[in-house]
Structure formats: C-alpha cells, structure tokens
Amino acid sequence: MPHRYAIRVLEAANCIILGKDRELRLALACLIARGHLLIEDLPGVGKTTLAHVIARLIGLHFQRIQFTSDLLPADIVGVSIFDREAGSFRFHPGPIFSQLILADEINRATPKTQSALLEAMEERQVTADSETHPLPDPFFVIATQNPSHQIGTFPLPESQLDRFLLRIRLGYPDRSAERALLMGEDRRELLERQQAVVQPEDLLAMQQAAHAVAVSERLIDYVQALLTRTRHSPELVTGLSPRAGLGLIAAARAWALIAGRDHVLPEDVQTVFPHVAAHRLHTAGDGRSVTPEVLAQLVRDVAVV
C-alpha cells in the first residue's frame, strides 16, 4: 500500500518538524511526483532540517551543497583526474551523485554553476569529458533561496525556475509549535536517532502508484480552464506553460495518492496550484512574483464543472 508509506513518513516527520504538516506533505508530494522542490524563506526556519528529515526517513543518500559565489560547476558535478597508474583520466563524481541534494542558497552561485545543477536536475544525468554518467534514482533536489537578501546574488531566471515543480515557504512556526520546539530536545539529536521508516524502493513504488492515479476528462477540463484563466488574466504578464500544466497534474496526482485516493479531485489541483504557479507567474504591473491573493482569486474565478 504505497499510500501507507507516505502516512508513515509524514507521521514520523511531524514529530521532528512541528506544526508544518502541510509543507511536509507538499515536499513529499513533490518527491513522489518526481519533481524538484524550491524553498524560499528566511534562514533559521528549518529548511535544512526538512531536507535532512526526508532523507533520513526514506533512507536516501543525502548531500548538502552550500552555494557560494566561488563555487564552480566541477565542484558539483565532479572532475576527471589523470590516473598515473592506469594511464588514463578517471572521473571523480561530485556531490550531485546523491539521492537527495540540498542546494542551499542557490542564488549565491554564478549562473554558470546554477545551470550545471539545473541541467543535471532536468536530464537526470551528468556529462563530463563526453562521458555520460547517470544520476541515481530516486534523485531529488531541494534548493533554497533567501528572498530578502538579494545583494550580490544571481536570481534564477524564469526558464530555470520552471524546472522546480513546487515552490513552498515554511514561515515561522505557530505559537504552540514554537513553544514545543523551544522546550523540547535538540532537533539535530532527535534526527540522529531517527531510523528510516520506509526504504528507497518504497519511494519508487509510491512514484509508480502516483503515476497510476486516475485523471478524469472532467478534471482535465478543469485544469485547462485554470491554465486558460492564467493566460487571459489581465493581472499577469504571461500564463502557465504546458509544462507547468503537466506539473500541475503530476503534483495533484501525488497529493491525491497521499490522501489515499485513486483519482484526482479538483481540490487536489486547487491545493497544489498556488505552489506550482507561484514561481512561474509575474504580475503585469510591476513584474514581481505573483502574490498568494492573486493566485487565490484565480482559483475562485474558475468554476468546478
């Protein structure tokens, strides 16, 4: 029962990260939908912990790459070094050859380095010295961005942002969750002791099951209406691309799977829609990222048939 695996992961994760059930679900849905996750938030709200928790609970091989302005593509992908004994070049794989990667503060690196990561994310393989090295499966990237400190950063261009399936914000914990956090044990120690609750193979099973979740014609009608609405909205610069539409359905499938259903409902689409659209749409007036209010209004403008 793939849906049981998801519940198990979420129950365990909620014990470590308090009061963030919805964000954890979205992160898991992103993983199940074979997408990559972008977290945009202030430091210290638990971005790294979230990545750690997911890796630990599923038993994924985890690597963290701190992006800095002097990080080079080879630092991520790996490098070929001449082996004197063998008399040939040998490829030393970089940190990207892991199942779960936390790309911390991705906007601090130069565009060249950023695109090395983003290309690997898209292709799920790395090419170095005309040799192709497949990346492990599952392969999941969680990238973080700090939205408030933009000086000396290279914001990701729109075409790159499109490679992230979902964008979430963690935000401050609510009062009771924060209290429990302050009074309780150190999260890091808690994490150290935590065992995997499912195996990587179970994740693959979940991914396959999500792919099999039924999408009815009526639901496609609804998704199309939603996409059309974003394309004709006077408040937006451009609408959602067909790729974003595919992502919307994939994320809604994963969300439906976590909810234990074998079919997608409009509610699933509505839940994931703001996170699929947030980093892909820009308001017409100032060209800034679209606000949650506008996205909520877009959803209210489209009738469920």
Binding site: L265, P266, E267, Q270, V299, R300, A303, V304
Partner: peptide, 9 residues
C-alpha cells in the same frame, strides 16, 4: 455551492 468549490470542500 460556490462555483469554484470542489465536491469534498
């Protein structure tokens, strides 16, 4: 029902 409201909601 609001027009945008899904059945479960």
């Amino acid at each position: 029902r609001h027009p945008w409201e899904g059945p479960l909601d």
